[in-house]
Design a protein around this nucleic acid. Structure first.
Lengths: 236, 236
DNA sequence: CGCGGGGTTGAACATTCTCAAGAACTGTGG
DNA sequence: CCACAGTTCTTGAGAATGTTCAACCCCGCG
């Protein structure tokens, strides 16, 4: 639970920035001249596994876009329990709040592996949003999706029991990966998954074993499992 | 639990529309000529208490802005349990998903009292967003707030116990109303509140009684209560 | 004045968490 | 390639928390 100090290594070389911006879905539909304008305000920073990009209480004044690696966003409850909000893959972003209301972060952002991030200061982005509405639309669209999944997640945690939440999560994974073999790889450790689903590692472990005993799944190693009977899972 | 059929009474008279648009925070910062453009695509519809504006499964193709009254948005879990997502007051809107990805509603929108709503078809709004970036920014800002509170709510339900969630909710109410007398009025029935907080009316009732016995609050009637000791509540 | 919906209360029951111990896995350095 | 250290994961048993169901109350409203 002890996190390393956060060290920003600024690599503002042209090479990095080009790589960064061109990978970002928010921008990569733009014509060349607009891209250049954006490049001027983007900073590339990197984090090593375990480093914190920001923590609760920090002033929030930038948009961060993941270029390489994985970041996890989580909150700490009063009681010190960690709740994983979401995992950022390349192309995902965070810090959106900063753009519209000055504020402080209420969550932590931690690198799950060595990661490279594009940072845009709020004050630099605002004018771009007004000038190029299509950027706003992209962000708006992303927000709509996130809002939807956040509300779905709340409803699940509030009304379904743990068993059901786990089953639904597994089926979702299956749908996303859609590998013909019905084998999925968990996007995070079981510890983190428990936190994401609002339960404990112990309970998660027990329920997975029950699924296995019932013949719905087959666990292989720590992160892989074969979904044998998705339909039965959804009926739980 | 049986909802009346949804009947749209279209009042497209000039009078209504003017009243509607001018009340909406998303638009009311705009100059006159833009307002006129918006008026042409806005429809005013009204609902009586208990009517459904949309239900899960309906095609989602409009933005709805509450002009008068109150709407509640809730989901139904597999098991038939209702989870209240949020309550729309005048100025609040819903249907955002429709704007960016075609889709179907996964929630229900029901009038809690006789209400008047402004409807804008997705296809009509899109061009306006591109033309007037400031509208996007307004919506973006609203989204950011909602996203934040949705994630906070998820984290609460996932990590805090019912007792704590209730206490936090009461204190939030107090902060919003900030009446000097420390008397708050619940924004919804206790039944709905239980659903919002992810618990049952029975548990809510019991915990409130405990708070009362401990001298933290004092209930008066069904919706009013006096918060005697907010600090103690937050320590729970 | 009776009806109906919220609201409250009680007791049994179900679910989940906690704590503690041991097992399995991962990555590292020899 | 192996041994080791540090995790993460699993399993058990008991305790805490919350739900369910059923009965009753209360209050506003026709």
């Amino acid at each position: 639970m002890d996190h390393h100090a956060c060290s920003h290594h600024d690599h503002t070389s042209h090479h990095h920035i080009v790589g960064c911006v061109s990978l970002v879905p928010i921008f990569n539909h733009l014509p060349v001249e607009q891209m250049n304008e954006i490049r001027q305000v983007v900073q590339s920073i990197s984090f090593q596994k375990g480093e914190l990009m920001y923590r609760a209480g920090d002033r929030s004044d930038s948009l961060y876009i993941v270029n390489k690696g994985k970041m996890k966003i989580y909150r700490l409850s009063e009681s010190g329990k960690e709740q994983l909000i979401r995992i950022l893959q390349p192309g995902d972003f965070t810090g959106e709040l900063a753009l519209f209301r000055q504020g402080i972060h209420e969550a932590y952002a931690e690198a799950m592996e060595n990661s490279q991030i594009c940072q845009i200061k709020s004050e630099d982005l605002q004018p771009l949003l007004l000038k190029y509405p299509s950027i706003s639309l992209k962000i708006l669209s992303e927000f709509a999706n996130r809002l939807d999944s956040a509300e779905k997640q709340t409803a699940n945690v509030a009304t379904e029991k743990v068993e059901t939440r786990i089953a639904m999560f597994l089926v979702e994974c299956l749908e996303q990966d859609q590998s013909a073999s019905n084998i999925i790889e968990l996007p995070m450790s079981k510890k983190d998954l428990a936190s994401y689903l609002g339960t404990t590692p112990e309970t998660l472990s027990r329920r997975l074993r029950e699924f296995e005993d019932a013949g719905y799944i087959e666990q292989k190693g720590q992160r892989e499992m074969k979904i044998i009977d998705p339909d039965k899972l959804l009926l739980i």
